[in-house]
């Protein structure tokens, strides 16, 4: 399938905050209440449309456990966006954000767009971290912020798409050097002149979900 850009994402955060469930909700539109513990790094992909352009998201879903940290680090490089996830019902997952952020900043390209996500917003009764706290943390560290629920799908689309919008805007502003693949962005076949045969199919279906 033809697309204008490919963005690489990485999802990070403590174990059990719902990283894999967010990805599953975004790619498959379903929720799995009991998800297997992620070992190492899993993969997901989906096509989205921004500004009338097809953008393919290639998403790496990492294990939150400390013992896999050295493996997940090798995926920061070449990521254009990161979803940093915590669980609004567990304060410790919020307290660890600084460590995650340091890790991400140290191992990624400096232009990486980071979206802070407070997940499990459906569990309002068990809330342990106020929305304002998440907002304040995001403001302080220059992140975008959203509360989501992988269970009800609330804000899940928005979280992934808004991150892409931010990256797209940075490309328009010339912040990202799209020819440098270490930035996690690749230009699709529509944009390269050496592929005349591909352009005819670009006006086709405008599906929001279409995995590779």
């Amino acid at each position: 399938m033809s697309y204008a850009y490919l963005f690489k994402y990485i999802i990070i955060g403590d174990t059990g905050v719902g990283k894999s469930c967010l990805l599953l909700q975004f790619t498959d539109k379903r929720f799995q209440p009991v998800h297997d513990l992620t070992i190492g790094v899993e993969f997901g992909a989906r096509m989205i449309t921004i500004d009338g352009k097809q953008i393919k998201l290639q998403i790496w879903d990492t294990a939150g456990q400390e013992s896999f940290r050295s493996i997940t680090r090798s995926y920061y490089r070449g990521a254009a966006g990161a979803l940093l996830v915590y669980d609004i019902t567990r304060r410790d997952t919020f307290n660890h954000l600084t460590t995650w952020l340091e890790d991400a900043r140290q191992h990624s390209s400096s232009n990486m767009v980071i979206m802070l996500i407070g997940n499990k917003s459906d569990l309002e009764a068990r809330r342990d971290v106020k929305k304002e706290e998440g907002e304040a943390f995001a403001r302080e560290h220059g992140l975008i912020f959203m509360e989501t629920s992988a269970k009800t799908a609330a804000n899940v689309e928005e979280a992934f798409i808004n991150t892409a919008k931010e990256i797209y805007q940075k490309i328009q502003d010339g912040v990202f050097d799209i020819n440098n693949e270490a930035n996690g962005i690749k230009i699709g076949p529509q944009h390269s002149l050496t592929n005349p045969g591909m352009s005819s199919s670009s006006g086709g279906g405008n599906q929001s979900s279409g995995c590779c």
Partner: peptide
């Protein structure tokens, strides 16, 4: 193991099956 892991982080796209026959992977 670690050197290979680090090297793969640079050349990963050539080794992702999902990307075969796309501009990013092998076969385009």
């Amino acid at each position: 193991f670690w050197c290979f892991t680090n090297l793969m982080s640079e050349i990963r796209d050539n080794f992702i099956k999902h990307l075969d026959d796309t501009v990013c992977g092998i076969g385009e």
